[in-house]
Structures are given as structure tokens and as C-alpha cells.
């Protein structure tokens, strides 16, 4: 999690983040997540990251926070913190090899999930 600890908390990447832009809540933005990670707060908010790396592009230090957030998700998983949607997706991947569940030939998936 090196890059998160290098973060200067300047906030310059905030408006590049699609999740922040949609929700306008500091907590879901890149800097907000860094604060949580530094405090070791295990919250499902880390699933609210598209891993798009827009924050890296906007960051003057080119920090790769997405890698840290991905690793932190694994920690959350271990701590039993996961979203309902990701539980279903994991189950589907195990059972059917895809996140959507059983798909009949030529048919669209019945449900689309997003964490």
C-alpha cells in the first residue's frame, strides 16, 4: 500500500474520479479512500472504485491508488466485509464461470450486477 502512504492529500485528483463525480461525497473519492486506508477502516466503500486510474492521470505524483484499493479489497474479503452483489457474482463465477449466472444460448443475462 506504498502509494497511499505517499499521498499528500492535496485533493487534486478528486474531480477526475467518476465515482466521486457521481456521488459528490469525499469518502468515495481517491483521497477519501486513502484516509480510510491510513486509518485502517474496513468499509465496503472500497468496492466503489472502477479501477479506472483516472486519479493516477490527474495526480502530480502519478500515484497508483487503484492497486492499493484492489489489495485492500482482498483484506476486506478476508474480514468478511463484502457487498451482497459481489457475493452473488463470486458465487456465479464459481458455478457458471461468469458473473451473471446461468445464461442460455443466444439470451442476454437476466440480471446485471455491479458492486
Amino acid at each position: 500500500m506504498d502509494d497511499s502512504f505517499k499521498c499528500t492529500e492535496c485533493g487534486l485528483c478528486r474531480n477526475a474520479c467518476p465515482v466521486y463525480k457521481a456521488l459528490k461525497r469525499e469518502t468515495v473519492g481517491p483521497r477519501g479512500k486513502v484516509m480510510l486506508l491510513k486509518e485502517e477502516i474496513k468499509d465496503e466503500i472500497f468496492y466503489a472504485c472502477t479501477l479506472c486510474r483516472n486519479c493516477t492521470v490527474a495526480c502530480p505524483l502519478k500515484l497508483e491508488l487503484d492497486k492499493d484499493f484492489r489489495k485492500y479489497r482482498a483484506k476486506l474479503q478476508e474480514a468478511g466485509k463484502t457487498t451482497e452483489a459481489s457475493k452473488v457474482m463470486i458465487e456465479n463465477v464459481r458455478k457458471y464461470g461468469n458473473p451473471f449466472g446461468k445464461i442460455e444460448e443466444g439470451k442476454k443475462p437476466k440480471e446485471l450486477f455491479c458492486c
Binding site: 499528500t8 492529500e9 461525497r25 469518502t27 477502516i41
Partner: peptide
């Protein structure tokens, strides 16, 4: 909630 309180506990001054 704890997460929101942590995220709003500072600004760029750190």
C-alpha cells in the same frame, strides 16, 4: 458513520 467521519477529518493541510 465512521468512514465519512474519517474522510472529512482533514483537508490538504493534513
Amino acid at each position: 458513520n465512521e468512514a465519512d467521519k474519517a474522510a472529512y477529518s482533514s483537508d490538504a493541510s493534513r
